[in-house]
Each structure stands twice: as C-alpha cells, then as structure tokens.
Amino acid sequence: MSHSLNEIEAMSKRAARGAGLAWGLAEEAAKGTRWLAGFGYPGPDLLADLLELNDRLPAIDFSPSSLTGTWRAPAGRMSPLISGAAMSDCAVRMMDGQVITIEQVSQPLLIVPFASGAALRLGVGVAVEWGNVRLTTDGHQLCVQGAREDVLCAHATEVRCCAPAQMTTPNAPVMRAHVDDACWARLGAFAHRTYAPATEASRLLGAGAGLNDND
C-alpha cells in the first residue's frame, strides 16, 4: 500500500517507542526510516526486522563499548541506530581523516540516514561502506554503488564511515513509498504497546452511549 512519508515516520516512531527505544532514538529511527523510504528502500521492513531481532533485550548490549578504535558491541552484534547516532555525533573526526569502523552491524543500511545528518552538519558528502557497497550522501541526495541485494543485507561484518566523499550519480527523494500490509502490521504490533489499556472510566468517556440509555 502507498503511504506518505509522514505516515511512515509516524508509524515508525510509535513502533520504535513500543519496542522500548528512548524517545530521542525512536525519533531518529523514524526519521531514518522515512529517509530510506524516500529513496526507494524498504526502511519500514528493515526497522521491523531490527526491532524484532532486539526486542526486550538491553540496548547496552548492542551499543559500542568504546568510541575509540574499532567500535564493537558486547552482544557481538551492533545496533545501526545506536552506532549511527554515535557516528553522527563523532562526525567531525572524519574531517581529520579518521575512518569510523563499526563491527558486526545488523541492518547496516539503517546507518546511512545518520550519515545524512552528519553530512548536513559538516557540509560535505559522507560515505558508508560495507562489502562491495558504497553509499554516499550530502544530506539531500544519495549515491549508491553496489548490487541492491548487497545494500539490503541483514548483517555486515564491518561498516566504514568516512568524509569528505564525492557525490556521483545522485538520486533525489520522492514523497510517497510502498509499504506492504504485512510490514505495516509488524510495526503496528510494536506501536500497540504504546497505547494505554482501556479502563472503565475511559470507556465511559469514549464514543457510544456508555451506561446511558439513549433509545
């Protein structure tokens, strides 16, 4: 089904929050999901996969143990949301020639929107690489090198982020994206956790006659 990017962002934010992500990270996850969908990539599916993979597990297990040297997570797999946010915060290091290297990343494509934010702050293109894939963004457009199946891989042994990077054959985003019903339902299941359970008082204040007989 076709959804506006605003709809995708709103659903993704509720789902991320329902999965236990802190508000700030849930907002960033939603913006990143929207950003990828705008470039024709299944951001909602990637987010749903990640939320299911790490559901109800401590976020610290999938966070960088240290931001010096190669970044590694205690659980042996890294969240692209947590490491992506940290990479964006540390982006100025790349202007000094440092390559930020992150090991064992789940759903690595979800890091790329954070590179977009970093590019906007730095004013230069930022590249994210793994395997035979290289994606470069200036914050507004995206250049993709590599086969689509490699771009969409579920796990990358090593992800490298560097700047400045040259933009070649850039693609501009669109305003709507297709999300299949199954994916929307998966996100909806997480979003449902954010809804307060109904009480007798809330039912009486809701739609319908409540205890009053209007007939």
Rank of each mutant, 00 (worst) to 15 (best):
G38T: 00
F39D: 00
F39Q: 03
G40Q: 06
G43Y: 02
P44G: 02
P44A: 03
P44Q: 06
P44R: 01
P44N: 06
D45H: 05
D45Q: 10
D45Y: 05
L46S: 01
L46H: 07
L46N: 02
L47Y: 04
L47A: 03
A48E: 05
A48N: 03
D49L: 07
D49G: 04
D49F: 07
D49M: 05
L50K: 01
L50R: 02
L51K: 01
L51R: 00
L51C: 04
E52Q: 14
E52G: 11
E52T: 08
N54Y: 06
N54C: 12
D55T: 03
D55G: 04
D55H: 10
D55M: 05
D55Q: 11
R56N: 08
L57A: 15
L57H: 13
L57S: 09
L57E: 12
L57D: 12
L57M: 13
P58R: 09
P58K: 12
A59E: 13
A59H: 11
A59W: 03
A59K: 13
I60L: 13
I60H: 11
I60A: 10
I60P: 06
I60T: 11
D61V: 03
F62R: 07
F62K: 10
S63F: 02
S63G: 06
P64W: 11
P64I: 06
S65R: 14
S65L: 13
S66Q: 15
L67I: 15
T68G: 14
T68H: 12
T68N: 14
T68C: 04
T68S: 15
